[in-house]
Design a protein around this nucleic acid. Structure first.
Length: 423
RNA sequence: GGCGGGUUGCCCGAGCGGCCAAUGGGAGGGGACUGUAAAUCCCCCGGCUCUGCCUUCGAAGGUUCAAAUCCUUCACCCGCCA
């Protein structure tokens, strides 16, 4: 397996930059190595953008290497300036600690914590919290040249723009310290990261050289770009999270189904663990018969299964089939319908209560942001009840609109759905 | 510390006393076409008890019949000088 790891990553377009590639390959083939990849807790959950690098970590583990997934309990308190043109808002200790624990839990899903090359979760707060400011300045800071620090992209772009605080300026020193500590404690000789991490990672290599006369490697992964130039992993509603409470498995599945044709091949190469042959045949299918969306489905299925499990994936698929099916929604059997609707945002109305007007109902379910927006969408012909367009503002649903005398299915546009349940 | 410039809706950016919920672009939304894709075309894009009303143009006061537009103070940003 170790054999073509780097070649495989190259085929997938997952290598942006590496330090001496020959030496890296040699070390990788000489036997299992320890490597690390850090995630800063900047939100309560990881998102699909993190998945890109996380799955590269998984590939390394499958090739026999030992992952040290790091959660930035310390760095998350400071804020990484990379890729930002503004200072980050600082979060409180409690909030960051909470996010750390949630992210740890998520990471566990993607790596194996058993066997010879079991992954080991680490938190940089463990080795930074007891270091005094003086120790830090003397033992670590002394190895850094401010001249060099200033040349890092993350810093220089901020010097030209909105400025940078001493706090964020110091970030690269903290991250370097992590690499040094992991090198010392676990003989970690490789750090992975997004391509925006190159500067931070190489700073760590320098520190290892100066402090320990040691040498290590860096490998960065390109930031995933979308064909239309918009940000990967964002929808109108915000980021696509891995936490099912924040992005439902259904919404997660739908995100991948909606992938631009022009992006599908690259996304599959980035995320899929299928064999090259299987992938190639999907690409052929995509080219010859894009309307069938076979590759889109394969992508959505594999990722939803990986992140949410087979059961949730099956539910999301069943819901998609039921809700987007050409068939008459009323003819779905109650069980299928109920499980499909359970994937959607849901509003309840006590049985016997009068129904709100069409506009009020749309606003209440959250498919639109306000009543004005509801009126607008109704006028434009974009509002549907039970898959039938309802364009009169005056309309108010009645009992006869209920499916199986319990549900209403509201839709805005092609795919923005919500359920109303009478209880 | 001094002088000057700036802060406008999700973002960029016009407006510089009434004709301003505020030009334009982008993002976003709906419709048509197609395939839950892209491109294209049309429409929309503060809120509400919607032919009208209410709240917005960094914050708070003030002038005026009338302010995003004028004045005062405060906050933040950006230049130049010290």
């Amino acid at each position: 397996m170790t054999q073509g790891l780097i070649a495989d990553l190259e085929w997938r377009g997952l290598i942006a930059q590496t330090t001496d590639k020959e030496a890296l390959i040699k070390d990788l083939e000489a036997g299992p190595i320890s490597f690390y990849l850090g995630f800063d807790p900047t939100a309560p959950s990881l998102h699909v953008g993190n998945l890109v690098v996380l799955l590269v970590m998984r590939r390394f583990q499958q090739a026999g290497h030992k992952p040290l997934p790091l959660v930035g309990g310390a760095t998350g308190l400071v804020g990484d300036p990379s890729g930002r043109n503004e200072e980050r808002a600082l979060n409180s200790d409690e909030v960051v600690a909470e996010w750390v624990s949630r992210i740890r839990k998520q990471l566990e899903r993607f790596l194996t914590f058993e066997g010879l090359n079991a992954a080991k979760l680490v938190n940089n707060l463990d080795w930074t919290k007891n270091v005094t400011a003086i120790e830090f300045l003397r033992d670590i800071g002394k190895h850094f040249s401010v001249n060099q620090m200033l040349t890092k992209d993350s810093v220089s772009s901020r010097l030209e723009g909105g400025g940078i605080s001493y706090t964020e300026f110091s970030y690269q020193v903290l991250q370097s310290f992590d690499f040094l500590e992991l090198y010392r404690r676990h003989n970690c000789i490789l750090q992975l990261g997004g391509s925006d991490q190159w500067g931070n990672i190489t700073a760590g290599l320098d520190l290892i050289r100066r402090a320990e006369s040691g040498s290590a490697h860096a490998l960065t992964i390109p930031l995933l770009q979308k064909a239309d130039g918009t940000k990967f992993g964002k929808t109108a509603g915000g980021s696509v999270w891995l936490d099912p409470e924040m992005t439902s498995p259904y919404a997660f599945y739908q995100y991948w189904i909606g992938t631009d044709d022009a992006d599908v091949e690259r996304f599959l190469k980035t995320f899929s663990f299928k064999s090259h042959e299987e992938l190639e045949s999907l690409f052929v299918e995509l080219r010859e018969n894009p309307g069938a969306r076979v590759a889109h489905r394969a992508l959505a299925e594999e990722l939803t299964t990986l992140v949410h499990g087979e059961v949730e994936c099956a539910n999301a698929q069943a819901a998609a089939k039921a809700l987007f099916g050409q068939g008459e929604i009323r003819e779905l059997d109650p069980k299928t319908l109920e499980s499909a609707l359970s994937q959607l945002p849901r509003t309840t109305i006590p049985r016997g209560e009068v129904f709100p007007s069409w506009v009020d109902l749309l606003a209440a379910t959250g498919v639109v942001d306000s009543k004005s927006a509801a009126r607008r969408i109704v006028k434009e012909g974009g509002a549907y009840l039970n898959n039938v367009k309802v364009s009169g503002e005056e309309f108010t649903p009645t009992d006869s609109d209920l499916i199986h005398s319990r549900f209403l299915l509201l839709r805005k546009g092609k795919r923005d759905l919500a359920a109303v349940e009478i209880i």
